[in-house]
Design a protein around this nucleic acid. Structure first.
Lengths: 193, 193
DNA sequence: TTCATTTCTTGTCCTAGTTCAATGCATGCG
DNA sequence: CGCATGCATTGAACTAGGACAAGAAATGAA
């Protein structure tokens, strides 16, 4: 049950058995049904979740009520809005919603602190995870600005081959920053080639 | 000389005098003239720099040779491309260039490790800095996708009031993800109101 | 001061992507 | 089973912003 999450957290930092036991003892297993809102705008995000099973989306809603999807998280990914919430004491501007029935390992801010106190090396592992998220987001910003809709869609298919079968197309459009109708047109054009 | 950087690093974590002395002893002061390339695509980024004075830009170059600016860093900001470079051993895809004569406090990957070994609490401070960068980048991605050129420019002026006087307009356009010509048109339209 | 280079502006034409609306297709639910 | 709701597709009209070109203004180096 813990082998995947242990592998994930050990990717850039090596932990001994004792440290991993502490880590596992603090993880809280939680099952959440499909279509559940786990975080809403204005709330504080009080979890950091590792996806054991299922699929989640994280999104903003803009001034005209349009959703902009920031992240999909599937098996073995982390999802949260730690960005401002915990340290700035500002409420979150994002929504987090399950798209499928999900299972998570969760940390609350308190248990994460406890982890860092009991095994300070985890501080480093989470710092590196954070760096990688930043790199991914920067790359996405670049792609969003510099590429055409077709290029973005093809790149998405390459990067997340399974996701296009799992989530509705209009969610993918929202992730790519284009309208659902236009994505459909892009797809028919690609299919013709 | 160290008071600003000490204030910056202490924003979310409190350090004692001894820890700050270690920190300061490892910082390497460096002056870099205007228009100097500090990092190029394909290189490893071997520094993490705190800007004492001056202005720097970090950018990608896309397939058609167009620059996309990811970040401006001015006084009291950090600039680097730690994203992949150090842990993934992948060369960087970004460029970093000084726009003005600059003064920095620099860390190499090695001295940063030394800092973490001698005073592990800095691991936490850098993790939180990283979280904040991620939050800023996510917000920017949202703005880039969901707002019009005019809205983006007005928001930029609010967020970075001094920067619009310091850097060339076509750099701001590149940061906002619009063409330099169109930014000029946006500006004359705004001025007329 | 002069010349050169870079930056900014303005106009015209053009296109990628949007918006709106209609239709067909699935899917889930009583 | 039939119905309702959400999802994808397609078309037509529209628009925000891009590309190109030419000139004006600013900056800077000799």
């Amino acid at each position: 049950m813990y082998s995947q999450v242990n592998k994930n957290i050990s990717r850039y930092v090596t932990f001994d058995v004792n440290e991993l036991e502490i880590f596992n003892s603090l993880l809280e297993y939680t099952a959440v049904p499909k279509k559940t809102n786990m975080l809403q705008e204005g709330e504080m995000c009080n979890f950091e979740a590792y996806v054991i099973k299922g699929c989640v989306r994280k999104y903003y809603i803009d001034a005209n009520g349009f959703e902009v999807i920031l992240q999909f998280a599937i098996e073995n990914a982390w999802i949260s809005d730690i960005s401002f919430s915990i340290y700035e004491d500002k409420p979150s501007r994002v929504y987090i919603e399950t798209l499928e029935d999900c299972e998570f390992f969760m940390f609350s801010p308190e248990t994460k602190e406890e982890l860092f106190n009991k095994a300070p090396k985890f501080e480093r592992a989470f710092r590196i995870l954070m760096q990688r998220s930043l790199a991914v987001t920067q790359d996405r910003l670049f792609t969003t600005i510099s590429k055409s809709a077709t290029e973005k869609y093809l790149e998405f298919l390459e990067q997340y081959p399974t996701l296009s079968q799992r989530v509705a197309q209009h969610y993918i459009a929202s992730y790519l920053g284009i309208s659902a109708e236009f994505l459909s047109k892009v797809r028919t054009k690609i299919a013709k080639i």
